[in-house]
Design a protein around this nucleic acid. Structure first.
Lengths: 231, 231
DNA sequence: TTGACATTCAATTATTCAATTGAATATTAT
DNA sequence: ATAATATTCAATTGAATAATTGAATGTCAA
């Protein structure tokens, strides 16, 4: 292993990391883990993958250095190993989006207007939210919101958006986001809001991208967080 | 395929790209393709992979959008699909390097000093080469050098370096490079030069990185290029 | 210590992927 | 047309991987 042609050995390691990314379930898990440290069971619930499979996939991800784990009581909490992983996922997304025509068709097909991608920087946006000039809308499920969100964001899960429109400002611009650039919840939220005549845009990125941009993240100590007390 | 949950369909595409990267042979081929447009046969020669396998791997890479192909006469020339691919490879390398301890050990084990990584920008370097303040040393095989290299670089393949030391300036700083950041030839060259008392460093990156930085690339119309006339 | 719970391990089966070989296709030159 | 060459396709084999199930491990609380 160690005394073989170094080039081969290097490629083997790089290939191992890429192989770990080469599974839909693991990508799904990675996106969820990127939201914040989580237990195996919670990830199984959120992704709908059987918990034994989740455990195995997480171990595969760990072996290739994409996630890290620590024990807390009787559960094991997994997290993204470091910011480079988020950037790697971004680069993968970029290549796939730009080059695989299929993706374009899927996104375009489902969501008419592929809307203004990041017309305003995240840092500026954070300032505007603080000044009350725009409203950030987090359309993820409540428990995910609780474990970490953009400061000042309003949480209305996509499923309830239609009914709870009154909770959102009428004229102010609304910026929707969810898990990350791949997450379709935000696309759908923007489509719905625009149909209702609201001024809405999508944040090109989710919580992980917000975090690695060096911006603060807020957590709700409790908010349906029965399963989250330990975090 | 197209009317399935969009999230799944997106992940499937991203996973497909990652899977395409998850093979040592394909990474090897990608590194070579990144040097410049090349035919299947030439790639087979340079990588030592049977040509039928090379063809299949290239098709896999093409299907996932990592390389593109065009026909020229009776040969098919493959090239990197776009700059995003180089960046993706860089991100992969970064994650693997930072997180997979194995790589550190391999690199450190083989090459004592992991030497000054990119202490000077590529743009500045290009200027210094032009002014004759430093010498760029390309240690790749002659035919690879011929199909594209840093302007003004001297080509001495690693195997001949010890014998041809006299061709290099005695006191001037020497910057060695080869195919890319993973390429070990440059590490070895620097080690050898330093042992000889020369002032040598390694360029953190190779021709592809040079190219996507927007810097010019020079080709030798002829230089052992019997097989390269058409390029 | 016992029981409850979260996670991991082990074993099975089905699927996918890789390498190899030889044949088929497409292009150029004769 | 025919031959020569570069590439691709097809079929085989063996290896790696994924999903599933049930058992085993480790931790906390009573």
């Amino acid at each position: 292993m160690s005394r073989q042609p170094p080039k081969k050995a290097l490629f083997a390691q790089f290939a191992a990391v890429a192989r770990a990314l080469g599974s839909e379930h693991r990508l799904d898990l990675l996106e969820h883990v990127a939201q914040g440290e989580q237990s195996v069971e919670l990830l199984a619930q959120r992704t709908g993958i059987p918990f034994a499979s989740v455990s195995q996939h997480l171990q595969a991800l760990r072996k290739s250095g994409l996630v890290a784990a620590r024990r807390d009581g009787r559960r094991v909490l997994y997290r993204i190993a470091d910011d480079g992983v988020i950037r790697l996922l971004g680069a993968l997304r970029q290549v796939a989006e730009r080059q695989v025509a299929e993706v374009e068709r899927i996104v375009d097909g489902y969501f008419r207007d592929r809307d203004s991608l990041e017309p305003v920087s995240k840092k500026e946006l954070a300032a505007r939210v603080k000044d009350g000039l725009v409203t950030m809308l987090d359309v993820r499920p409540e428990d995910e919101f609780a474990s970490g969100h953009v400061p000042g964001a309003v949480n209305v899960p996509l499923a309830q958006l239609r009914k709870r429109l009154t909770e959102l400002p009428k004229r102010q611009e609304i910026i929707a986001y969810c898990r990350g650039p791949w997450c379709v919840l935000a696309f759908e939220a923007v489509a719905l809001l625009r149909k209702q005549g609201r001024k809405a845009r999508r944040l090109d990125g989710g919580l992980p991208e917000w975090r690695i941009a060096g911006l603060p993240v807020e957590t709700s100590a409790s908010a349906d967080g029965k399963r989250l007390e330990r975090q």
